[in-house]
Design a protein around this nucleic acid. Sequence first.
DNA 1: GTAATACTATGATATATATCAGGTTTTGGG
DNA 2: CCCAAAACCTGATATATATCATAGTATTAC
Lengths: 229, 229
Amino acid sequence: MEQRCENCIVRQFNSLRAMSKEELKKVSDSKTTKVLKKGEALFEEGEKLNGVYCVRGGVSKLSKLSPNGKDQIVKLATKGEVMGQRAIIAEEASNLSAVAVSDMEVCFIPKDSIATTLQKNPNFTMEVLRHMAHDLKEADDVIVNMSQKTVKQRIAEAFLYLKNNFGETEEGFLKLTLSREDIANVVGTATESAIRIISEFKKKGLIRSSGKQIGIVDERKLQDLAEGF
Amino acid sequence: MEQRCENCIVRQFNSLRAMSKEELKKVSDSKTTKVLKKGEALFEEGEKLNGVYCVRGGVSKLSKLSPNGKDQIVKLATKGEVMGQRAIIAEEASNLSAVAVSDMEVCFIPKDSIATTLQKNPNFTMEVLRHMAHDLKEADDVIVNMSQKTVKQRIAEAFLYLKNNFGETEEGFLKLTLSREDIANVVGTATESAIRIISEFKKKGLIRSSGKQIGIVDERKLQDLAEGF
DNA sequence: GTAATACTATGATATATATCAGGTTTTGGG
DNA sequence: CCCAAAACCTGATATATATCATAGTATTAC
């Protein structure tokens, strides 16, 4: 696989595309590549990061522990996304933990290369800003979903999200396979409740499953359900 | 009251402090001041903004209508905060509505002055970025609260938030008075449920009230409650 | 000053969801 | 291949919260 940032396609999806050739070169020289197995942690909530992680492949969950001991997944980061940016910019410890939910390959980029580029290249800063503006909007949407939709609606929505963002295999199964617990933590409910509703969806013919894999059968009905019909 | 941005104290609280003298002058020349009565709308969800609003006084709720017809308040913006930034940066229509919850005075700053400064002054861009990073973290916290805490916990938390962010009067009442409906919309519950829990808090001596005003009596216990004891 | 309208309050009931407890099935390491 | 551990499933029950209904109480408008 391509080892230089300058030639990395992943870069096209994130704010690094606004970097100049020289800046990219510096980043590329200072970066290190890391391979993670499903389940391995990249960083923990409260940890001070000294760089950001650019996802080359695989998916990571970004979650936050609530006082009652449950883990709330706030975002799933995939190819092209940069994790840890927020903490670096705010000069704070990370407010989230990152754990791989599939095997991953990520590049670690030390804080310095990012910080100096932020100071010197307004285009880059602006690009980062745009991405953050987008994330903020998504977070607002999640807040509304959490407070106004039922668990059933949120689970239906989650499946559609998984399809739209991570795609399907040839046989029509969701490419990203999450455990029931992870699904529960995405929608903010108890694992048992998530399991029950998933079974119900299966019985109703909205989804099907084969082992761990889940396939969407009736997208239209799922959509309606998510919207409250 | 001071009419020039260059001398406006409010500016110290927001990203405008990173502007140069000349930039501020331009902003000041192009801005217009607006006075709003409690209940009046500043902009609506889906509306295309052609500028941002800088709050000089009073408080505005930023909310989003959910498909089921309920309004979820995502943020309360007060003195010094800039509203509409996210939409301008992302070049999208606003995802939120802004309505005054107390009498307000705001300055409207046309998009152009902001956009050109964003292009030319990296310090300003960086400052905006820092603010947005902060907002994003807060949004993540709200997501976790929404999904993991009970309504009772969230209401307790809301009162503490109101005290810490908007202060108390001489007599020990919260300066910002919200209707029960607004409180319900902040914590994401039905108005009746909010009313019930507020009555309960009163009975238990955690808060007191006089007309519309609410005063915090036992902050410690409220805190404990919010954390789940 | 009175009518109309919004806001607050409280009870009764229904419902969604969490929790607890017991299973079965699947998975991965030795 | 087997065993232990993890993941999944299902039932019974408890609980929080929404919803519906009704009434009192402020606020505003005429």
